[in-house]
Design a protein around this nucleic acid. Structure first.
Lengths: 165, 165
DNA sequence: ATAGAACCTCAACTATAGTTGAGGTCAACA
DNA sequence: TGTTGACCTCAACTATAGTTGAGGTTCTAT
């Protein structure tokens, strides 16, 4: 039977209640706790008791995860904030601005890749010499480590297409 | 000392040569082989020997990975193609079209998320009732499993913001 | 008081994408 | 022929993000 706890608003929440309200599995809440993303008080019998602020906190975690931020980074971003009161509008503003910027970056990378892919569909090139897909970081001409031609003299490029292969 | 193998173009490549030319670690090439992404012939002494076509194949694998396609999916897309000749323009056209569509989808999802995030910066809402970030799948009103309000009567929504918390 | 749902910890397991190391073999150059 | 770098397999390990299960305890409604 479910507890009829509808009326006392300030009661702390059990892990099951947080799970149900947030859509996050109990095991995941445990896991987040080990990672320092959330914190719990304990009942006399050592059961987790959460301030309601945790609901907003996990909502923020979920959003951040959707943007592709790894948990460790979310943790460090949240670690400066108190975990016993809901995030303020300012907290959220700061976090969401940072994360949106990162999201912008990811979108830009993928968009550029998409455009390159569009340009290369049907061209069949994948040429080491000039294909942007194949040479994404402008490696040729750099002096660093990484992929490079074995024999810089002659038409070594795309030797896999050499006749007779 | 490096073998001076610059002249015989049709010779098969050793795993080290493929690694150097493709920018992929030897261990990763081994790994790809266990996953069925590439294949090798063996020398009398059981060393891997690759047809030059493998270079194009791994180039395609790298591009697909950059778009976020998991290896298993890349494997199944490549599995229908012969691995002893370079991918044709048509092969590449088919693959890249499919992958670009998936990339389009990923970009669209992230862009929509970015727009929601932009809209929510500073609003501080994260409201279960109407925040698109918090309720991304239109869960309220659906009859399925998943996160839901514990007490559908009354202003339970965002109870974590209730006074006195 | 007691049944049973919900909770606890800890270890092991899943999946993805590899890397690292031990112990041993091969190949090519001198 | 000998040396040495490159190669071989297999197992174990890394990291991320969790899930599952065993074995035991707590909470709460009746």
């Amino acid at each position: 039977m479910k507890k009829d706890s509808g009326s006392d608003f300030k009661r702390e929440l059990t892990v099951g209640e947080v799970a149900e309200r947030s859509g996050i599995a109990v095991s995941t809440l445990h896991f987040y706790e080990t990672k320092g993303l959330i914190r719990s008080n304990r009942s006399r019998g050592n059961q987790r008791r959460y301030p309601r602020a945790v609901l907003r906190r996990v909502a923020v975690i979920k959003v951040a995860q959707r943007t592709g931020i790894p948990l460790a980074e979310i943790q460090s971003a949240l670690s400066v904030l108190p975990d016993d009161r809901p995030l303020t509008v300012e907290d959220w503003g700061r976090l969401s601005k940072t994360w949106r910027q990162q999201l912008d970056g990811r979108i830009a990378k993928l968009t550029s890749l998409r455009d390159q892919l569009t340009g290369c569909i049907g061209c069949g090139c994948l040429s080491m010499r000039d294909c942007p897909l194949r040479n994404p970081y402008d490696v040729l001409g750099s002096a660093g480590t990484g992929p490079r031609l074995m024999d810089p003299s002659g038409s070594v490029d795309d030797a896999e297409n050499a006749p007779g292969a």
